[in-house]
Nucleic acid binder design. Sequence first.
DNA 1: GTCTATATTTGGATAGAC
DNA 2: GTCTATCCAAATATAGAC
Lengths: 227, 227
Amino acid sequence: MRARRSETVRVTGRVRPADGRIRDACVRLFAQKGFQGTGIREIAAEAGVTTAALYHYVDTKEELLLDIMYGVLDPLTAAARRIVKEVDRPEARLSALVEHHVWFHATNQLPTVVTDSEIRSLGSEVRADVIARRDVYEAIWRSVVADGVADGTFRVADPRIAAIAMLQMCTGVAHWYRPTGPLTLLQLSRRYADLVLSMVRAARGGLPVRADTLGSPSPARGIDAHV
Amino acid sequence: MRARRSETVRVTGRVRPADGRIRDACVRLFAQKGFQGTGIREIAAEAGVTTAALYHYVDTKEELLLDIMYGVLDPLTAAARRIVKEVDRPEARLSALVEHHVWFHATNQLPTVVTDSEIRSLGSEVRADVIARRDVYEAIWRSVVADGVADGTFRVADPRIAAIAMLQMCTGVAHWYRPTGPLTLLQLSRRYADLVLSMVRAARGGLPVRADTLGSPSPARGIDAHV
DNA sequence: GTCTATATTTGGATAGAC
DNA sequence: GTCTATCCAAATATAGAC
């Protein structure tokens, strides 16, 4: 016996990184059929191993889900911190946050969909940890919006609601995007940045701020280890 | 034997309306634990009946989910049609659509969350039907946005993306709203309408259009049978 | 590390009495 | 219309050999 059965995945830090084939199989299946709708046998079959081999890498099915979620949330937060450090003004920061978020969710659709949809499938202890990490990320967005409102760059009635709303609409990209569309990923990210800047009525010197006048760097700059 | 086991829920029209207690139990459990994460025994226990009694009202677990989804999508579409019929200009239509959508998702959080999250749990035949109904609703939004762009009231680069983005941010209300906040539901709906009008840069006579200058009627007017 | 084989629990759904 | 009792398939996870 390796570990007790439920609610006992260690909360501290990372889980053991599972083999790449196994993680990829989980991402595909969890995104398509849901965590609870995916059997351990399917995962094993999709990864080309047996269930017993699976349990050599991991103690519970839940750990496989956690591995995916950390692989989404941690790079997102790292990128947001980098942006706040390297970019100065609220409108440029917000634009960069949006562009990176959209780009990340479009280039990592399956793991981001899983992260967005399966939090409720986690046991209560690890769920609290995942939610805490997500909150850290969202707090960065909130503070950037609040800064812009405070210095008069943005005008919205409720910065907190605006931050939630823009996060949800940007995360939504993972649910509908298909690479076959007419737009490149960078164009799409730029469009979303424009929508968000419009939403908060971003302006400088009485003129609306548009994303393409900001010259933000490519969203992919820096390290962005995918799941 | 009452019906074949999988993929055979009738697609035509409504499912038999299950008993109120059973439907409520399903809504609560599916929203909290997910469709696949909820057992037939849990539903029965929460409804205060036995599993055998459950199967007197319904043939499969999937039918219970379908009943919830139709109870969300059909009233939403009916309301959207009413709005388009009764309201004239694009900015007033869009504002009314948003206010109703937000109000509906805040007053029907559990069924709307289930509808938003569990489409993938449906068998392929009924799933296609549900997606088709959802598309009908979303097409109304798209056409309102397109009309506004066409007549110069709105200015967005890509109306289709804007429609998807605003729908997702408004649907998101069902996932975070708690009735304990400082805003009334009507204030919240108004705020979202404002965010959306800003997002599409709605303007008349060179001046931005704000939701509170439109005097839209209460989102709850008309019949809105909840699930 | 990976296998075969299996323990054990829970899943959806039914039979048949009342 | 609701019950008790149950069928059978599928679930997660393990044991123990190689």
